[in-house]
Design a protein around this nucleic acid. Sequence first.
RNA 1: CGGGGCGUAGCUCAGCUUGGCUAGAGCGCUUGGUUCGGGACCAAGAGGUCGGUGGUUCAAAUCCACUCGCCCCGACCA
Length: 479
Amino acid sequence: MTGGPVAKITKRSEDYSQWYIDIVTRAEMADYAPVKGCMVIRPWGYAIWERMQRALDDMFKDTGHSNCYFPLMIPQSFLAKEAEHVEGFAPECAVITHGGGKLLDEPLVIRPTSETIIWAMYKKWIQSWRDLPLLYNQWANVVRWEMRTRLFLRTSEFLWQEGHTAHATSKEAMEEAERILGIYRTFSEQWMAMPVLSGRKSEGQKFPGADTTFTIEALMQDGKVLQAGTSHYLGQNFAKAFDVQFQNRDGQLEYVYATSWGVSTRLVGALVMTHSDDAGLVLPPKLAPVEVVVIPILKADADNAGILAAAYRVAEPFGDDVRVRVDDRDNVSPGWKFNEWELKGVPIRIEIGPKDLEKQQVVLVRRDTGKKTPTPMDAISFQVPGVLEEIQDGLMKKAKERLEAGCRAADTYESFQKAMDEVGGFIYAPWCGSRECEDRVSEETKATIRLVPDTAEDCGVCMVCGKGPAKRVPFGRAY
RNA sequence: CGGGGCGUAGCUCAGCUUGGCUAGAGCGCUUGGUUCGGGACCAAGAGGUCGGUGGUUCAAAUCCACUCGCCCCGACCA
């Protein structure tokens, strides 16, 4: 393929939403599928997801989790066993009524999440305290019949991982839920270079079937916020619904304590919205499918064979440490390649032309700053790892500054609404803790309580009802 | 489900108001040649049941009816 996008992408200042769509489609991360609300994840987008998977999977394994796989189809009755769960998910389930040309005795739902089928199995596998904890994870696809979809951020079918653990004590399960939240936070910050706020969800925002939901929340460039990952302490809700009991050390029967947690391909969308600019995608090196692209610049009157050889020689010493690609296509011009790789977000470009060959140097260009640095050819392989680190850190620093600038405080409902309309972001405002006040804010301003920080300070009276005591919690308009 | 938009070449679209000759452009694609340090150029080509069905008419991409689909904005949500 020498073709591809020629048109410029929409500027963020003109139409943020269109800018996002342009980047995702023109960087060939994803395309609309023939099925409404569904997308095809193309190789460039999938490679980013694979990088994410690998990093997360390593962290899950390092904390004692094992991967497994449960079926896509769940008997409809399973979903109904947990009251809040069915209420939350039934409306958005795809249901299979026929198979093999016959009406099924019982319809099957395509999993919107797998708690129910997993707990049906856990009932078989758990009898004793010695069987616990069960620390399982699966990488899977799920389907939720969403009304309004958006590439990567919300599609009818999406890819994710879902962890499902079973524990002998409440304390242990709660620790697990918090441990995973920590993993999500670490991954987000260290791999995605995406700073987040973390904490508990309010009653109104928690997962259907959970006692406590922990969340990480990120700030996008347009001032909207995004839930990037959740970890749930499920208490004994699913154990009771599926009658999963174990005998404890004292010989007593007890219901198992549970957690579930997940992150999805939404993270790819979050990545786009966190770092990218009007020239296209900007990838943090750790998640970039290609970290360095080497572009030989060939000319009619130059030593093209020498330039090509030099390009390969420059790429060679990186070995497995750095993901390098030499773009030796001869059917597109260097300028075309520059634009294409910028659009695709590759962190470092190395140019080698006749002038460079003469001076035994290359030109190193950073995607994040656009800065061009002539570098001696024999020094490049030593310098690149450091520059990649600088880019990774620089992206984090910039994103962190934006997050900090995006966190503001408001004391009155009026100033809160004003701040929400003018700048968005996370507005910290006093809230009494009641569902009524939370719902009223949500209805009137479309902003929701993103989380309740563990360290939330007491701060006088609620901005809505005027009653105290109130805690300061961040509100935001979410994707 | 409400509001808006769009279905004509792989992509972006023009043509439709006021029906008419062989349905067009740019980009992309193929072949050959010259190029190549920020989206190169020349030449020759390939590529279309104008979303679908029905109707009006001598004649429909164009007018009428019905219908299908997708995208964007909003309500719901990872």
